[in-house]
Design a binder for these strands. Structure first.
Lengths: 254, 254
DNA sequence: CGCCTACTTGATTGTCGTCAAGTGGCGTGG
DNA sequence: CCACGCCACTTGACGACAATCAAGTAGGCG
């Protein structure tokens, strides 16, 4: 890192992976205790980011993957006309930076949406660990594959769904994440702004706002600022899935 | 393969990778001669598909990656409402099936758009090769990463560009592919139908047709059936990139 | 208290999807 | 060999959904 001026330096915390409550999780579930221990030897120290602080920027040389421990991160690109295109949101348990492997430099910028703690994992170390542990290698391939699958289905979402369905999918995805991580499925806080959501879902901010309002009027959700409550999971999922019938939308307009 | 009834059987050809004119290429450039030879030992026999024949189908158990040797393949999903969503087109040199690693079954179906020859690569063999060769492992990671980057930028295309820009991007991408593979950059044949293009670019068939016509009227391209000729690469790239000025579109309408 | 930013709400426009009617190439069968 | 029918594609008319433009509201922070 000493010469890596493109990446922001953060104060080192005392704890290592051993102290992390997600010990080993960041490289994939299904790893044996043994594999986790091997892993621990290569893990770098955690870093703390304040809201709005940059983790890495597009084009910067790639050396580390980052595992999100807490908080939230968005990755994004700036299009030639100066618009921000949000690529993805990353929550605890996510690993960021895989895109950079091929080119050797990050293909997007990453900033913290909130106070965030990340573990830097030297990619060089990780690949050498993969050479020694078939389990870790398998976990890496699986993780990369899962990310591709995720992007692929997101692509289908953007390509085929309308604004309401996109928002619904987005909320359901978030809810599922929170459920899987032991939080309340039906009541959570959006770590990102409306503009971020809009840029992520390829919609205008106004459309996001209007659609959320409509979902609220339909008593499907309740939104107070960034606090979301899912009131009718049934209907939300129906919309997210593939609502063929759009009467809802028609009704909701009036 | 004996129990793999979900995958279509094709007559085995006499040649192995040794006879393939793309020897070793399928697992990534940058591999040493040595690595390629290791690779050759694990490569399975090539298969021949006729136009419209299925290589694998969504949900079938995953055992093989497929390297396209010649021809063209499309991967697609069927949405709940019965529509076909084209995920990607695959040309010679491409490796198909990475998405399946995580779940253990294919996440999309694949069919040949034309007479096509593919090499089946047993994933199990490939991972074990990765354990023995750091070069192959690196190539695999890079390839997966490159695929993610590609999907990511395609996502930006779908999310931010209009019909004209999407078509232009599509044509430029194809042209670049042909250029990189030693074919004419400005004159090629589309292996896929208008409907496939539409499903891929998330547009209506009619829009694809209209837009191609418009590009032709503007003397940017020339389309005769599936034969495409790029007449004004300059303007096509301008449209594909990020044409801020849309006068072209305005003009072309009349 | 006041400014600034984030968000909301309304009015209008435009792009693209849908519906509908052609056109043309190609294979099949008489 | 021609006629027919099928399918892929084209072209036109219309309407809908979401973007844009514009104004207004409400928190958060100095």
């Amino acid at each position: 890192m000493s010469r890596d001026s493109h990446e922001v330096q953060f104060p080192r915390q005392s704890g290592q992976c051993q102290r992390c409550d997600r010990s080993g999780y960041c490289l994939g579930q299904g790893l044996s205790r043994n594999a986790i221990h091997k892993l621990l030897n290569i893990s770098a120290s955690p870093r703390l980011l304040k809201r709005g602080q940059e983790l890495f920027s597009e084009g910067a040389p790639f050396n580390h993957l980052y595992a999100v421990r807490s908080g939230a991160v968005k990755t994004f690109k700036i299009t030639p006309d100066g618009e921000e295109q949000v690529i993805d949101f990353h929550l605890p348990g996510d690993l960021i930076g895989f895109n950079a492997i091929a080119r050797g430099c990050y293909t997007a910028s990453a900033i913290a949406l909130d106070t965030t703690s990340v573990c830097a994992i030297r990619f060089e170390d990780l690949t050498s660990l993969c050479m020694r542990s078939a389990l870790v290698q398998e976990a890496m391939f699986k993780r990369l594959s899962a990310l591709m699958t995720r992007e692929e289905s997101f692509l289908v979402t953007i390509g085929t769904k309308n604004a309401t369905q996109r928002l619904a999918s987005f909320l359901v995805t978030l809810s599922n994440y929170f459920t899987n991580h032991g939080y309340s499925p039906n009541s959570f806080t959006l770590p990102m702004s409306r503009t971020d959501i809009a840029n992520y879902l390829s919609l205008a901010v106004e459309t996001v706002s209007r659609t959320l309002t409509r979902l609220q009027r339909e008593t499907i959700i309740d939104v107070q600022r960034n606090a979301v409550e899912i009131r009718d999971r049934e209907r939300l999922c129906a919309l997210a899935g593939n609502a063929v019938n759009e009467q809802f939308t028609a009704d909701a307009i009036h």
